[in-house]
């Protein structure tokens, strides 16, 4: 089944939000209907605004990557911890790619920024650094063209499709 509320490139403000070093979790499911999930460590949008790539540590996401390779279905949730602003994207053409040198270089700043965000909840920096630690050699990029976007900020409207141009 194809769900779509996205046509063309994503809204620039949404792209800015998705790539602003947020907490990211990625889900997929097997052809038998078994869901799985893992954390992603950073997001990059293609220059034309059509394809989003998420950095995923292979060692933490073997089942997820197997599912994506099998059917290409993907869901990813992006959360800004200190504001609770949350967006979920879905796609059905996900594929696994090697990361670029720029992706590897972005890992350090990503961890640093999230550690700062979590200090809002008095989470010690040492904890954040362990939580988001990854070896760039262990990362792959999972890219997909988002076909649906949902607002998931906690509240009664969580889960509703996000209207184009509307902030999460």
């Amino acid at each position: 089944m194809r769900i779509s509320n996205v046509e063309g490139p994503l809204d620039p403000s949404l792209i800015q939000f998705l790539t602003s070093q947020l907490s990211i979790q990625v889900a997929a499911c097997s052809d038998a209907g078994e869901p799985t999930l893992a954390r992603a460590l950073g997001a990059r949008m293609s220059a034309d605004g059509h394809r989003l790539a998420l950095m995923v540590p292979v060692s933490q996401a073997r089942e997820l990557l197997t599912c994506i390779a099998a059917n290409g279905h993907i869901a990813a949730v992006f959360n800004e911890p200190e504001t609770h602003r949350t967006v979920q994207l879905k796609g059905n053409d996900a594929r696994i790619e090697a990361i670029s040198a720029a992706d590897a270089a972005a890992l350090g700043p990503y961890v640093e920024r999230l550690a700062r965000r979590l200090q809002h909840y008095q989470v010690p920096e040492a904890f954040s650094r362990a939580f988001y630690a990854a070896d760039p050699a262990d990362l792959v990029a999972v890219s997909f063209s988002p076909s649906a976007v949902y607002g998931q900020t906690p509240g009664p409207h969580a889960g509703e499709p996000l209207k184009p141009g509307k902030a999460p």
Partner: peptide
């Protein structure tokens, strides 16, 4: 202390992921 993530999927194999309080 740290919200967990939960993944589910529909009968037609569309995954979903969200935070659970």
């Amino acid at each position: 202390v740290i919200p967990a993530g939960v993944a589910t999927c529909s009968r037609d194999l569309v995954p979903n992921v969200s935070y659970v309080s």
